[in-house]
Nucleic acid binder design. Structure first.
Length: 336
DNA sequence: CATCAGGGCCCTG
DNA sequence: CAGGGCCCTGAT
């Protein structure tokens, strides 16, 4: 049987000419870089970062946008300058809605004071909070987009996830040009919904093609609504997400934390995470990790109410360190 | 060259 | 509820 070769899009980028500027005021304390860049995320063509600046594409109200977020403040007096590029002029209603959405996704109004008060003196967490004070978990994507990211993460090394994501952008994304750079913007679910499972398979996503297809279909048919889900309970959200084909407890755990901001969500620890936590909290050899139950018990006892947020601080701290220093034991666990 | 596990999940028995 | 299969890749 002949296999169709995936079509490579070689279209020129669409140039976004119209520019708008908005000031955002996150709730202090706010750490710009630790919120706007997560070194544990695999690099993808829809965003870029350098200290003080994050570029991010965004599909909002069917309009592909180029965003640039720039740090204009300090941790205790935060301010973000948000530049927005679009193909056409945007009206005030659109900009207001967009501002609200970015504020939600990036968790800009999160009040960290109780967390800081409660754990500021913790011998292990306290120093990490001091170091990253104002950091918060954030999602830069819609729920649909995050689900796609979660699917390409499954059972793959980082390099493979990067390749799968790039192939999807090349074929279904929109290449945008703004602020002297070219970044891909996500597709509307309808676009991938028109593709066949075989077309997706030809992008070397493997058996994930079926999951991508089924999840996309659920959004194209509007069987799942991110904004309705935001107002439901954590368990209702969990149930709705688990009902999606190809989405299991590991993906749901990330989504409840990053997308829906549940700061106490931590039920699932995958084997590679187990090794890293064992080393961090019990100083064990990664080859002989402590049990998942032991780890969950420890988190529950020490960080109850903020399990996900607390672990997020340790986790990000570790991955920031890997940016500038070699951590031998960790490199084996993060397979590139 | 072959074999295998990987930042899961589904399905089967 | 334990375990096999799944796509592809790069490490061994």
């Amino acid at each position: 049987m002949l296999r169709r070769v995936a079509r490579e899009k070689v279209s020129k980028p669409s140039v976004l000419a119209a520019k708008h500027l908005i000031e955002l005021f996150p709730k202090a304390p706010f750490n710009f870089d630790a919120t706007m860049h997560k070194p544990d995320h695999f690099p993808s063509a829809d965003n870029d970062w350098e200290p003080g600046i994050r570029w991010q594409t965004m599909l909002w109200q069917r309009a592909p946008l180029g965003l640039k977020l720039e740090n204009r403040g300090t941790i205790d007096c935060p301010e973000i300058s948000l530049s927005i590029w679009a193909s056409d002029e945007l009206d005030q209603d659109f900009l207001d809605g967009l501002t609200d959405e970015i504020t939600y996704r990036c968790n800009l109004q999160l009040d960290l004071s109780e967390f800081n008060r409660r754990f500021g003196d913790d011998p292990q967490l306290g120093p990490v909070i001091d170091k990253w004070r104002g950091m918060r978990p954030a999602s830069y994507s819609s729920l649909y987009e995050y689900l796609i990211i979660a699917i390409v993460l499954q059972n793959a090394t980082v390099r493979r996830s990067v390749n799968m994501m790039q192939a999807l952008f090349d074929n279904y994304g929109t290449l945008l040009s703004y602020d002297d750079r070219e970044l891909y913007c996500f597709w509307e679910p309808e676009v991938v919904n028109r593709a066949t499972e075989q077309e997706l398979r030809d992008l070397k996503v493997g058996y994930r093609a079926k999951s991508i297809k089924r999840v996309t279909e659920a959004f194209a048919r509007q069987e799942i609504d991110e904004f309705e889900l935001r107002n439901k309970s954590r368990e209702e959200q969990r149930e709705a997400l688990l009902a999606l084909y190809g989405i299991g407890p590991a993906s749901v755990g990330y989504i409840l934390g990053d997308v829906f901001h549940h700061l106490d969500e931590l039920n699932h620890i995958s084997p590679w995470e187990q090794k890293i936590y064992s080393r961090l909290f019990f100083d064990t050899d990664p080859d002989e990790p402590v049990s998942v139950d032991t780890l969950l018990g420890l988190f529950n006892e020490r960080f109850g109410g903020y399990r996900m947020l607390a672990v997020h601080y340790f986790w990000e701290d570790l991955f920031w360190k890997t940016k500038c220093e070699k951590i031998g034991w960790l490199e084996k666990l993060i397979r590139l």
